[in-house]
Amino acid sequence: MRRIKPVIKVIPVIRSATINLSEKTIDKTIKASSFLEEVANFILFILRTFKETFSRKFEFREFFRQCFQIGYKSLPLISITGAIMGLVLTIQSRPILVTFGAVTLLPSMVAISLIREIGPVITALICAGKIGSGIGAELGSMKVTEQIDAMEVSSTNPMRFLVVTRVLATTLMLPLLVLYADAWGILGSWIAINIKGDVSFVLFSSQAFGYLKFIDFLPAVVKTFFFGAVIGLVGSYKGYTAGRGTESVGIAANSAVVLASLLVIIVDMIAVQITDMLI
């Protein structure tokens, strides 16, 4: 009896553990399959956008309106961010370079860092927040208030009108915004240097661009087209596939920012690897 008793006690524990395990397994399987479904839907959405981009009826008017909204209206934010990037980078790097007696390299170091990496990534992350969430919320609210359905029944292809125009506008505007941010960053750096010294802008520019080569510039610009496409696609996808309730608008905007930021970092990592292999 003494030997049997513990076994009897253990049986319910094992049974409940088995049930718990199977429930957890089912939960995980459901989560995994819905994740894969989401990935598949996103890929299909990209393919459909790509197909609609090359259709004959292109919505030029809406495309230019989106370029204005995405590009021009982001300029104040990008100017401030760019200038602060350059300013902070210079102030933080100066003491180390002073220690090694290489303070004259400060302008070129800041310029190379800004143009190759910091400018594109920080600008893309800010745009993921501003533009990605904007597109997600706008399309999500259009879905909730049946505006996308209304477009569809009035013989307008909403993918072509809403998605293609936004994705192309972000793809083309982001490189311009990055270059604009880089320019402000270099100006910010010059201001930072002049806080503790007296360097003319001509001398600063010649030092900043002295070590900069075309090969530093090209991959950095090329990858920003991909950053732009990612932000446009993710924002549009999250908004276009939002649920029916008003809560879905917030979810669409939020998840657009999170996913776009993550994908920007991943694309950057891939771009850096490719550049490293090629150069």
């Binding site: 706008e138 049946e146 505006q147 359905d149 009035s154 013989s155 307008t156």
Partner: peptide
């Protein structure tokens, strides 16, 4: 099709809303 919510395009004024299906 008259939608329950009206489904007017928020980014366009009344004239542009009416012009939208007409142009297409």
């Amino acid at each position: 099709f008259l939608f329950q919510s009206g489904a007017l395009y928020d980014s366009m004024d009344v004239k542009q809303n009416l012009e939208f299906p007409l142009i297409r």
